[in-house]
C-alpha cells in the first residue's frame, strides 16, 4: 500500500513537471513562430495617391486625429523655387511679400526663404500644417506640383478603416507596404523606386 502511494506521488510530480516543460516549450515555439511570421510578413499602412488627390479638403476634416495626420510634403527635387509660388501666394497677389493677406495657407505653415535672385525655398512646418491641401492645389495649378499631401506615418494611428479613405471622393487612399509607406508622385517617387 505504502509502495503504491509512493509510486503515485512520484507519478504526479513527474506529470506536473512534464506538463510544465511541455507548456513552456509550446509557449516558446508559439512565440518564436509568431515573431518569425511577423518579421517575414508585410504589414500595410494607409497612404494617399497624389495623382488621384483632388484636394477636396476632407483630409483635414475626416481624420480621427486633430489636427489631421495628413500633411503637406515638399518634394524639393520637383520644385522650381519660384518667386511667385502658386502654393504659397493667393491668386492675384500684387506684392510678393509674406504678409497675411498674400498667403494661401490658412495656418501659415509654409516658410518662404530667400535663396538667391530670383529663387526662394519653401519649407513646410509640420506642426502647423492641417492637411487642407490648399497649397497643393495652388502648386498643382500654377507650378510643378512639388507640394503633395501624404499621410505622415509618425502621426498616423493606422486605423483598420481609415476615416479619410471612407470619405475620400477621389478614392485616392490605398494600403501600401509599411516598408515603403510614401507614394510621392514625380521625381522623389522615381528615385525611391530606382
Amino acid at each position: 500500500m505504502a509502495k503504491k502511494e509512493k509510486k503515485k506521488k512520484h507519478n504526479r510530480r513527474h506529470f506536473i513537471d512534464r506538463s510544465l516543460r511541455i507548456s513552456i516549450g509550446l509557449g516558446l515555439a508559439g512565440l518564436g513562430s509568431f515573431l518569425i511570421k511577423k518579421s517575414i510578413s508585410k504589414e500595410y499602412v494607409w497612404q494617399l495617391d497624389p495623382e488621384k488627390c483632388i484636394q477636396c479638403g476632407r483630409c483635414a476634416t475626416s481624420c480621427v486625429l486633430t489636427p489631421s495626420a495628413v500633411k503637406c510634403f515638399h518634394v524639393y527635387d520637383m520644385c522650381g523655387y519660384c518667386d511667385l509660388c502658386g502654393g504659397y501666394f493667393r491668386p492675384e497677389t500684387k506684392k510678393l511679400t509674406t504678409a497675411a493677406e498674400n498667403q494661401l495657407c490658412p495656418t501659415s505653415a509654409i516658410v518662404r526663404k530667400f535663396v538667391e535672385e530670383p529663387f526662394f525655398e519653401y519649407d513646410i512646418v509640420e506642426e502647423l500644417c492641417n492637411g487642407c491641401g490648399k497649397c497643393v492645389k495652388g502648386c498643382g495649378a500654377f507650378g510643378n506640383g512639388s507640394l503633395q499631401l501624404q499621410v505622415n506615418h509618425r502621426l498616423c494611428v493606422n486605423c483598420n478603416e481609415c476615416a479619410i479613405a471612407r470619405d475620400c471622393p477621389a478614392d485616392a487612399y490605398q494600403r501600401v507596404p509599411m516598408d515603403d509607406p510614401y507614394t510621392f508622385s514625380g521625381y522623389r517617387n522615381k528615385e525611391n523606386k530606382s
Partner: peptide
Amino acid sequence: THNRLGETFTEAAFAENALNKEA
C-alpha cells in the same frame, strides 16, 4: 471635442470646396 470639431472642420471644408467649385 473630436466629433463637434470634426463637424466644424467639415463645414469649413465644404464652404471652401464650394467656393473653389468653379475651378
